[in-house]
Design a protein around this nucleic acid. Structure first.
Lengths: 323, 323
DNA sequence: CTGTTAGCGCCTTCAT
DNA sequence: ATGAAGGCGCTAACAG
């Protein structure tokens, strides 16, 4: 792996100047067909590839790049967000660089590669490093950072009301234990707290599981065992809720007759299970659109430090059949 | 949007040299705490952000970027691939820039942003443009390009054999009509051709649908109507197969009793439907690992033109309950 | 500890 | 149609 082949090498090989090489490689005018051919042959022979850094440095393109950091690609919720971000970004001519948060080194790697980082709020806002790109947080309400907030709470309040109207009186929850990672032991998630508050004394209990289909099913089973009287269950996310529906189906539990099941996220996959999953749908499209709007504002400020920008996205109940 | 704030502006503002600014911003040594603080204050005040291009140009980092172009993020198969690519890339310290092929402008945008492009073979290999990055194709067998081939055929042969052993005698298929886009009208996919060949005169017919859960279900219904005698159905992909299982469930068709259903892809979601979906599982992990291996080879050749590199990935039957 | 001198590789003037 | 300068913004390598 010797020295990199540069435009000068090509120029020498073809017996022309660097500029002529530029013209040939970039398909510009003011160059004779024969010269172009000769240069391109030299390019082939040497295996020359222009340096994207040098090129972008000098052309000052409006090529903006945004780094999207998501928790995990195992949860389709995040891939859905990524998809939405992708199309929102494409509309505005942004590139999207993806990174999974599990890789701890990523944020720093991203720093030198992107103009803006978009990531989920992980409890403690990663401090914007000096010389690093600005960060836009997803789903938080922290006032000091750029953020697109997600109003899940009102969706939860609404679903509790709606479930009551349909006769539900004993509310249970399948919660995620993911906060364990930062807190050491299980801590009720905000979703559970909102749910408990909305359900009031009709809240009968919760079970905790990992964020997977299988463990969602297991936790649901555990909840049913401990609280057989439960007649409406909110599940932390659709992934786990799918497991719950599956578990109910496998154990002959009538859904929504005996127990109503509601997920959170509104994933398309919810329609594939039996019965199709009712869910508190998060508007991922709006989430992405807003994130990009903020990114655009940042870009217009040349990514300098500006006052925190906030956007809010609401959630809606996606009625299917499980509730 | 005035002139960009550069390191020189900061240097002037702080009354130091550029080099000192570099030291402060990059947290290097050889700088007094007071100077550093003063410089960082100037950075804040001016809203200075280093140019990632200039920085990467001069540091000649081993920061490689790979552009991943997928057909659509609506199909979890592709997001799964993206996820696998992401972790494979993270292991090797590569960045992944994502693009959806639906956006036609993307490939050219990518060219100037990445070192290697990884994309699905779309029938006609996009010719590598002079000065553009090398391309690694996924799922093809074309000999002239770098590629990771996917051996789906052997999986199809194996599943037909296995289904025969379980008593199946009348094979039907739900195929995708996606080739319509390039051919104008429906053309049997390679998957169907392999399947027909394997099934021989036990092949009874096929129905065609769009690549979605809903249309997979519809097409499956159509197949059953036209060929009620069918007792084993191969579906183009898991997405459509999910619809098929769902359709069967909704119409009281016993799966696998009356008809066996097999998908292709091996998505995790297959386990959430009733009955869980048997599928020809593609090893996405190996696919990604191989693609990155090729990318690495390309990197070692400084992305110059080298002989086509090929890898092959096999498929395995993932037995669940639908077959 | 701080500043100076060289480039990194390319494209944009301008000249020829 | 081609070539010669100049500079994009930054950091490495030396100076002091």
């Amino acid at each position: 792996m010797g020295k990199r082949v540069t435009i000068l090498d090509v120029a020498a090989e073809a017996g022309v100047s660097r500029q002529t090489v530029t013209r040939a490689v970039n398909g510009m005018g003011d160059i004779s067909e024969s010269t172009r051919r000769r240069v391109l042959e030299a390019v082939e022979r040497l295996g020359y590839r222009p340096s994207r850094f040098a090129r972008n440095l000098v052309t000052r393109q409006k090529q903006h790049a945004l780094g999207l950091v998501v928790a995990s690609f195992d949860n389709p919720y995040y891939t859905d967000i990524a998809a939405s971000m992708l199309s929102a970004a494409a509309e505005r001519g942004w590139q999207v660089i993806l990174a999974s948060a599990t890789d701890d080194a990523v944020p720093s790697m991203l720093s030198s590669q992107v103009d803006v980082v978009v990531m989920h709020y992980t409890g403690s806002a990663v401090r914007e490093t000096v010389g690093g790109p600005p960060i836009v947080y997803l789903e938080t309400g922290h006032p000091d950072v750029h953020a697109v907030e997600l109003d899940i709470e009102s969706g939860i309040v609404a679903i509790v009301d709606a479930l009551r109207e349909r006769g539900a009186r004993r509310f249970g929850m399948v919660d995620s234990g993911h906060l364990r990672r930062t807190h050491g032991n299980y801590v009720p998630t905000p979703k559970r707290q909102w749910f408990e508050r909305a359900a009031g004394d009709q809240f009968v209990g919760a079970a905790v599981g990992e964020e997977s289909i299988a463990d969602g099913g297991r936790a649901f089973g555990e909840l049913l065992e401990r609280h057989p009287e439960v007649d409406a269950v909110l599940v932390f996310n659709d992934l786990m809720a799918l497991g719950a529906v599956q578990h109910a189906h496998a154990h002959g539990v009538d859904v929504p007759g005996a127990v109503r099941i509601v997920g959170i996220d509104g994933l398309a996959f919810g329609e594939a299970v039996s019965p199709p999953l009712t869910s508190i749908a998060l508007d991922r499209h709006a989430l992405a659109a807003n994130a990009l709007e903020i990114a655009q504002i940042l870009a217009e400020a040349d990514f300098g430090r500006i006052d925190p920008v906030h956007r809010k996205v609401r959630s809606d109940i996606l009625w299917r059949e499980s509730a």
